[in-house]
Simulated scan of single mutants.
Amino acid sequence: MSRVKEGIRQKKDGHYELPLQFKKDNPADLASKEASAAQLKDSCWLKGPDFLWQPNLSVKHIIVKVDDPDPELRKAHVHTVKAENTNPLISRHSKFSAWSRAVKAVARLKKCVRRRSGGQVWTDQTTNLKERRKAEFFIIKLTQEEAFADDIKKIKCNRAEKLGKRNKLYRLNAYLDANNILRVGGRLSQSALHHDVKHPAILPRKSHVSDLIVKYHHERVDHQGRGMTMNEIRANGIWILGCGSIVSSHIYKCVPCRRYRRTTEVQLNSPSRNSQMNDIVILKDECTPRNEWKLATVVEAQPGRDGMVCKLKLVLSETSVDKGKPHTRLINLERPIHKIVTLVEAN
């Protein structure tokens, strides 16, 4: 490579030319100049360089130092990629839209595994409460291992003080229980509350499992506010990091909550058209379906003191069958304006 660099010379047009001894082994050199068919037949354009036909190729590892101002130098950017092996069950959780369905599916899956291994007799019964509770702990444990892998290793090695004071797990005095589930510590251990309430399981904020749990408990409290939903979550032994913001975000996107909490509609007192003669209207009837309401024609409009029509005189036709022959008669009615709906306005 050093001989190549020394033999390279620059032409007047700015291009660079290789030495003669390297042009013979360069097939691309024939494409830049004219050559006859006979020359191409015996050249390295068709058969390649001569050193490729040798039985033993000489491989030399040469380190070449290139100067920075070299015009032929091309800068390249190298990127490192970090690959992580994730549990396939964790990616399956994103397929569920309800927490109860995910728990029942995992409980049935674990029950089928026990049956296949011979640890349980085959029955047609559904999963019981104990099996579903174990499935909840299993899902929570998988989520914690994905989100807090490094922190769990430090806690297992009794190096919880190395978490850092800015770490949220350090503030919660987190520890691992007998089932290796990450839980909240603190002084409530001396209280008479239930173990899951004293030491709730910790879940990350950005997790599909956390979203499912928030949705499930929000529906259990009948779509009440943020405080009621957070209390319900923590009363069931779950501590979600940043729970207030994730609950508020869910309530903002919840369709029933948007419907219940919308602003009260205000009736606009805008002037409307008065009913006139020959208008075709529909008669409202609270005792019959809307598709059976009758049509009528306005004969007279009676205005009130404010000049707006408050009562109408109507004519409608009623057809009856007598001895196989239809008979039509006209009926005169009076109806208030709020008991009719204008269908076609008179010209």
Rank of each mutant, 00 (worst) to 15 (best):
Ser275His: 14
Arg205Gln: 10
His338Pro: 00
His195Glu: 14
Asp211Val: 06
Ser191Met: 07
Arg159Pro: 01
Ala28Leu: 15
Ile337His: 04
Glu72Tyr: 05
Ala28Asn: 12
Leu172Ala: 08
His223Ile: 08
Thr342Pro: 02
Tyr216Met: 04
Ala192Phe: 13
Ile280Arg: 05
His250Gln: 11
Asp68Gln: 06
Ala135Lys: 02
Val266Ser: 01
Arg261Val: 07
Lys5Cys: 08
Arg183Met: 04
Ser317Pro: 01
Arg115Leu: 12
Tyr216Asn: 07
Asn180Ile: 09
Ser189Lys: 15
Asn291Trp: 12
Arg171Val: 06
His195Trp: 09
Val321Asn: 03
Gln54Pro: 04
Ser58Arg: 11
Ile340Glu: 03
Asn158Gly: 06
Ala201Tyr: 05
Arg262Phe: 09
Ala107Trp: 05
Arg273Thr: 14
Ala98Pro: 00
Leu316Met: 11
Glu318Pro: 05
Val106Gln: 03
Asn291Lys: 10
His208Pro: 04
Leu333Ser: 02
Asn85Arg: 14
Ser58His: 10
Thr123Val: 04
Gly185Asn: 03
Leu57Asp: 10
Arg9Asn: 02
Asp150Gln: 13
Val106Gly: 01
Asn180Val: 05
Asn291Ile: 10
Pro289Ser: 15
Glu136Tyr: 06
Val209Leu: 07
Val214Leu: 05
Ser249Trp: 04
Val106Asp: 01
Met1Phe: 12
Ile282Gly: 00
Val344Arg: 13
Ile340Lys: 00
Leu212Cys: 00
Ala37Val: 14
Asp42Tyr: 13
Val78Leu: 11
Asn332Asp: 06
Val299Gln: 08
Asp211Thr: 12
Ala178Cys: 08
Tyr252Ser: 12
Lys313Ala: 09
Lys339Asn: 06
Ser272Asp: 08
Leu30Gln: 07
Ala38Ser: 14
Ser270Ala: 13
Arg159Glu: 13
Thr123Arg: 06
Glu292Phe: 13
Asp29Ser: 11
Arg258Phe: 07
Met277Asn: 13
Ala296Arg: 01
Ser248Gln: 13
Lys134Gly: 14
Ala83Gly: 02
Val214Ile: 14
Leu316Ser: 10
Ile331Phe: 08
Ala98Tyr: 07
Val103Leu: 08
Gly324Cys: 09
Leu203Gln: 01
Ile337Gly: 00
Asp42Leu: 09
Glu131Arg: 03
Lys156Gln: 15
Ser58Met: 11
Ser91Ala: 12
Gly324Thr: 10
Gly304Phe: 03
Pro27Cys: 07
Asp279Trp: 01
Leu20Ser: 08
Lys130Cys: 04
Glu145Thr: 03
Pro71Arg: 01
Gly227Arg: 13
Pro326Tyr: 03
Trp45Ile: 15
His195Tyr: 11
Pro336Leu: 04
Asn278Ser: 09
Gln190Thr: 11
Ser272Glu: 13
Cys157Thr: 12
Asn56Pro: 00
Val78Ala: 10
Arg101Pro: 00
Arg290Pro: 01
Pro289Gly: 15
Cys157Phe: 03
Ala192Thr: 15
Lys253Thr: 11
Gln21Thr: 12
Arg335Glu: 05
Lys12Asn: 06
Arg171Ile: 03
Asn180Arg: 07
Asp13Val: 05
Trp99Glu: 05
Ser249Glu: 14
Arg108Ala: 02
Ala107Gln: 05
Glu146Phe: 10
Leu129Tyr: 09
Lys23Leu: 14
Ala35Asp: 03
Gln125Leu: 14
Leu241Glu: 09
Ala201Gly: 05
Leu142Thr: 02
Ala35Lys: 05
Gln267Pro: 08
Asp151Val: 06
Gln190Met: 06
Phe22Val: 13
Glu72Thr: 11
Ile152Leu: 13
Lys313Arg: 15
